[in-house]
């Protein structure tokens, strides 16, 4: 290969571009199948709109500025909730992972709460916190908390004894030991948890927006559903999917920068 490229050629190697082609190709094929199925008349077009109609609705929304404002409203809540939930989850995970009394006291309760579906908590949340921004951010934080807590707890719990021993013989103890060994060793685990939390916090936020909200992308999707506007509703879903994918890629890149010692996957 090297002989075919100039020294500073920025274009990707053939294997990389053919990989991208395969991914794009399969996505395009799926879209084509969807378009054909929707247009075939087997399903009513208003329950099952073709991607061309969805794309059209998406473009219209974008042009009118409605899409941007909806995404911004949801995005603010989602990022605040994700940050809050991840921090609390990581802190809780560090505590319950390393300190046995904390684990015995808190773990059963947290595991119990973790499996309660978001929709079942909605009425309670509405009752206690109302329908303002705080309640939505709290709900998104709730969604983010559990994956981060669980993955951090597992990571901290499985910090190898050898690292702790080595650090102690080098003079680390107490809080210093924490900071120098437990936290760095469990960061990759926490990062995985945050990656999951990116989507679970969005699920929780969507539930909150659909039940009582003044704006937001999930609110918009529900609104379109109520008015039988299936293409617009699917356009909202598509927008969320794209944003989620982009967020995930950004996050993965950030993790690679911040945790450079990881062996490349």
């Amino acid at each position: 290969m090297p002989s075919r490229f100039a020294a500073n050629d920025p274009s990707p190697s053939p294997s990389e571009s053919s990989r991208a082609l395969v991914s794009l190709g399969s996505a395009a094929a799926a879209l084509l199948v969807w378009e054909a199925a929707a247009r075939s008349g087997v399903y009513p077009p208003h329950l099952f709109p073709p991607p061309s109609a969805v794309l059209r609705a998406l473009v219209l929304d974008a042009r009118s500025g409605e899409l941007a404002s909806d995404l911004a409203a949801s995005g603010r809540r989602w990022s605040a909730g994700l940050a809050l939930g991840s921090l609390c989850g990581a802190a809780a995970g560090l505590l319950t992972g390393a300190w046995r009394p904390a684990r015995l006291a808190a773990s059963p309760l947290l595991h119990f709460l973790r499996v309660v579906p978001f929709m079942m908590l909605m009425p309670l949340t509405l009752l206690w916190f109302g329908i303002g921004e705080e309640s939505k951010i709290l709900f998104a934080a709730w969604g983010a908390f559990f994956p981060v807590w669980l993955s951090t707890e597992t990571a901290v719990f499985s910090v190898e004894r050898e690292y702790v021993w080595a650090a102690r013989t080098l003079g680390a103890d107490g809080l210093r030991l924490w900071w120098e060994v437990y936290v760095p060793r469990s960061l990759p685990g926490t990062a995985t948890g945050v990656r999951l939390a990116v989507s679970t916090s969005m699920f929780a936020l969507a539930a909150a927006e659909m039940v009582g909200s003044f704006d937001g992308i999930a609110y918009r999707a529900f609104y379109c559903y109520q008015l039988f506007q299936s293409e617009k509703m699917m356009a909202c879903i598509a927008a969320v999917g794209v944003c989620g994918y982009v967020a995930d890629r950004i996050f993965a890149a950030a993790v690679r920068r911040l945790l450079p010692w990881q062996e490349p996957a």
Binding site: L126, I131, G212, S213, F214, Y219, Y223, Q226
Partner: peptide
């Protein structure tokens, strides 16, 4: 400021 809610939740709110 218009919020979307289902009637039972409206009563509670």
């Amino acid at each position: 400021k218009v919020a979307n809610m289902s009637p039972p939740e409206m009563v509670a709110a």
